[in-house]
């Protein structure tokens, strides 16, 4: 079976479709929030780990609010906080986030001089959350997050 496509993550879940390269038969793996969180709790990397974990990587990346000045462990595209998204990103060699058309239009409506900063903030947030596509919903989340 080969990875074929994926949907999500959306609202904490994602679907990954595998396809048989010989006959085309497809099966799908569906994740749910609780299972994903339990896997994340183990501090392991789905899909295998070739790099060495950073010191207190799991603690620092999982704490919702931490002290200013503590080094953050910024996840790479393949090391998102969602272990399954990380695996999928790596499998599809994805290193860029995609923007939905409405989200892109909303970004374009922002004054040009602040647009790069907004784009960076939104993409950083999306990567941290394990999103692979930036939608208007994600932009709303970022806005709410920054207003906290």
């Amino acid at each position: 079976m080969a990875l074929h496509e994926w949907h999500g993550p959306s609202d904490g879940t994602m679907s990954i479709v595998y396809s048989c390269p010989n006959c085309g038969r497809q099966i799908a793996m569906l994740t749910n929030q609780a299972e994903t969180q339990i896997v994340r709790s183990l501090g392991v990397k789905i899909g295998g780990r070739s790099d060495v974990a950073a010191p207190m990587e799991s603690l620092r990346s999982n704490l919702a609010m931490q002290r200013e000045g503590v080094e953050t462990t910024r996840p790479s595209t393949s090391q998102t906080k969602c272990p399954f998204t990380g695996m999928v990103n790596e499998a599809f060699a994805r290193d860029a986030l995609t923007w939905s058309d409405p989200a892109l239009a909303r970004l374009e409506s922002i004054p040009a001089f602040v647009r790069p900063m907004v784009r960076t903030n939104v993409e950083d947030y999306a990567r941290e959350q394990g999103y692979v596509e930036i939608t208007e919903l994600v932009m709303d989340e970022v806005k709410a997050h920054l207003e906290m």
């Binding site: 709790s41 183990l42 501090g43 990587e57 799991s58 603690l59 990346s61």
Partner: peptide, 25 residues
Amino acid sequence: IWQAPTQRGAYTWRSMVEMSALREL
């Protein structure tokens, strides 16, 4: 507060995250 898609149902995984954090400390 541990990051999660939702804090609902956190009783199912919180103790595991805490053990992982304790191991790392």
